[in-house]
Nucleic acid binder design. Structure first.
Lengths: 220, 220
DNA sequence: ACTTATTTTTAGACTGCCCTAAATTTTTTC
DNA sequence: GAAAAAATTTAGGGCAGTCTAAAAATAAGT
């Protein structure tokens, strides 16, 4: 009756691909997300549908049911809390914690999660700026924009990233861009959309659109 | 090539049953320890022997190889460090942490373990008084005796338990017996070997031999 | 709209870890 | 030291999750 490691992963990945509106997720997208083949995905979808964790009709794509959504949010809560723990408590870099949290997120025990959250001070956001659902599954809201959508002259705070891969995060580290830093868009280059940005009032650098599309910011 | 959750459990259990001298472990003992049947154990032993983690000859019982021992100590180190974390950092009771640590011990990542250890102050003993191997696999030594072997009149410190089950630990909690408390054996009953013990100089209670055989103490 | 291309599902098979039942080896007992 | 008892291993099979190859359904192109 309990849900396996693998099932939990499928739910989490369905949630992540599906996005906040709960759009339908295709078999191929899931095969990509789970690093398996489409045929394997179909098998698992049948199983999850049997458990009423997803809405599934052949060839139609899937969405999470109420129960599936709740479970997915639980996994995501655990993942993000562990990331906070790894960075804040153990001193890991934000580029090192994803894979470890990927394992820790499947440790069962609600008491563990609640005590961990409380030890960490019930954080609302993880080290990448992603919102952490509370025990009831409520996501803290935050309407961030991409840096690529910010106009010349605006001043913003860096609040999150869309790309969680190590190379991207390490690139930000090397550029001196971190969560919470001030950014002033001084100039946007016409042909490649790269931006000249003043960081924390001390240093300016060029940020390519490739990068700025993956940075979430908030009006200051 | 990597070792599964299940394989790790076998190694840990072989180590625990085998004891410090590395005695041979029988198939049946392992079946008991892993809560599986003897036939399943035989299958796994073949696999572990194939990987050269155990010395195995049919019908002869098993011992750990050098490599197997090293791996087992790694798992045990992780288990005990996580127990310290759960009790010291998150405030769990010593009777609640075994099952959770049983899961956490299989999270890979040497860096995680080392940082956890260092965050906890490189503890030498876990909340049940069991020694924690260091990163190289060296066990802190400590020659404890069972309370049941202590003579009348002796004063000792309570240093560990042999039974790690929740009911036993809860019984100790209710009796006010905890790690580090002083114990003075005032009288040993002749026919049932129960002991009248003064705890922390403030309260006396009877401890049955059943219990005193599971308490590890150190001369004060 | 009809043919082609893409996506998804079915069929059949493999591995890891478990099981029961039966055969074999070791240990005990008289 | 032979017969009975206990421990262990083999034989054959099940379930979860994966795979490849082939069939079926949907989407796209002209």
């Amino acid at each position: 009756m309990a849900n396996s490691f693998t099932e939990e992963n499928y739910l989490k990945i369905i949630h992540n691909i599906s996005g906040p509106e709960g759009a339908e997720v295709s078999t191929n997208a899931l095969a990509e997300g789970t690093a398996t083949r489409a045929a394997s995905v179909t098998d698992m979808l049948k199983k999850l549908a049997e458990k009423e964790l997803i809405n599934y009709k052949k060839y139609q794509g899937v969405t999470l049911t109420e129960a599936g959504e709740k479970l997915a949010l639980k996994i995501i809560r655990k993942h993000r809390l562990w990331e906070v723990f790894l960075v804040e408590t153990l001193g890991f870099g934000w580029d090192e914690v994803h894979d470890i949290a990927e394992e820790l997120e499947h440790i069962p025990s609600d008491r563990l999660v609640d005590r961990l959250a409380s030890f960490l001070g019930n954080p609302q956001f993880d080290p990448h700026g992603d919102p952490i659902p509370d025990a009831k599954g409520n996501m803290p809201t935050a309407d961030y924009r991409k840096l690529s959508e910010v106009a010349e002259g605006e001043k913003v705070l860096m609040m999150g990233v869309l790309d969680h891969e190590t190379p991207f995060l390490q690139h930000l580290d090397r550029s001196g861009i971190m969560l919470g830093c001030r950014m002033e868009v001084q100039e946007i280059n016409d042909y490649d959309k790269s931006a000249l940005v003043l960081i924390d009032d001390v240093k300016t650098l060029f940020i390519s659109q490739e990068v700025s599309k993956n940075l979430l910011v908030q009006r200051l």
